[in-house]
């Protein structure tokens, strides 16, 4: 029951990856990231066998942080910078969607070959983690608006979080809590930087930022 529920959540997260790759609007990209964060936040509940206040606290903090706080900050930055959609990305929507789908299938295939521990063999945790990291990379490389790249970075971080869930019984959750705090502060700072870039350059196109000027 728990294993199938976990797999369903990871499958939803993988679907959201593809949604993020295929969507042209920055707002729907942010929404995909937010739903993915919430799905990921619910996973520790399914993984831990007995109720523990510490796990509950971290899980709730993840759901609130990734599901509400970060999307709220990103949404505010988006409205402040007045951009709504990604225009002519470096890797088009259809190619990036196909790349992401190919990567997801490859991740599922690869996870079969990897020497995993028997309790993780049937789970989608490893394929989900690999697919999310790949999606994050594609977004980071292929999009040229700073906000889309931040979303790519968040999806990449979600993939790493999924990998971390493999070790949930041995690693202290303090590490996860620390990462969550870092990400939130990072997005907060990025929100300010996006505003600055917008004022200084009149655009959020990161290709313009490669040229030095006085």
């Amino acid at each position: 029951m728990n294993a199938s529920g976990l797999n369903l959540l990871i499958a939803v997260a993988m679907g959201l990856n593809l949604l993020a790759l295929g969507s042209g609007r920055v707002s729907s990209l942010i929404r995909a990231v937010s739903f993915q964060g919430m799905a990921l936040g619910a996973m520790p509940f399914l993984l831990s066998h007995e109720f523990s206040p510490w796990v509950t606290l971290v899980a709730v903090a993840t759901i609130v942080g990734k599901g509400w706080v970060i999307p709220l900050l990103l949404g505010r930055a988006m409205r402040a910078a007045n951009i709504e959609r990604e225009t002519d990305p470096l890797i088009g929507f259809v190619p990036s969607l196909l790349l992401g789908a190919g990567g997801t299938i490859a991740a599922v295939g690869l996870a079969r070959i990897l020497p995993l521990r028997p309790e993780h063999a049937g789970s989608l945790l490893v394929p989900g983690a690999l697919a999310s990291m790949l999606t994050g990379f594609i977004l980071l490389i292929g999009r040229n608006k700073a906000l889309s790249q931040v979303c790519g970075y968040l999806i990449l971080e979600n993939g790493i979080y999924l990998f971390g869930l493999l070790l949930i019984h041995t690693t202290p959750l303090l590490v996860e809590a620390g990462i969550l705090l870092d990400v939130t502060v990072g997005v907060f700072v990025i929100g300010i930087i996006v505003d600055r870039i917008q004022r200084a350059f009149d655009t959020l196109d990161t290709r313009k930022l490669t040229v030095l000027r006085e």
């Binding site: 593809l18 259809v94 969607l97 196909l98």
Partner: peptide
């Protein structure tokens, strides 16, 4: 249109993946 059709293709492809797995 190609984006939506690619999505449909991917949905069917993932159904294939689920069936295979």
């Amino acid at each position: 249109v190609p984006l939506l059709l690619t999505t449909a293709f991917l949905l069917c492809l993932f159904a294939l993946l689920v069936a295979w797995k």
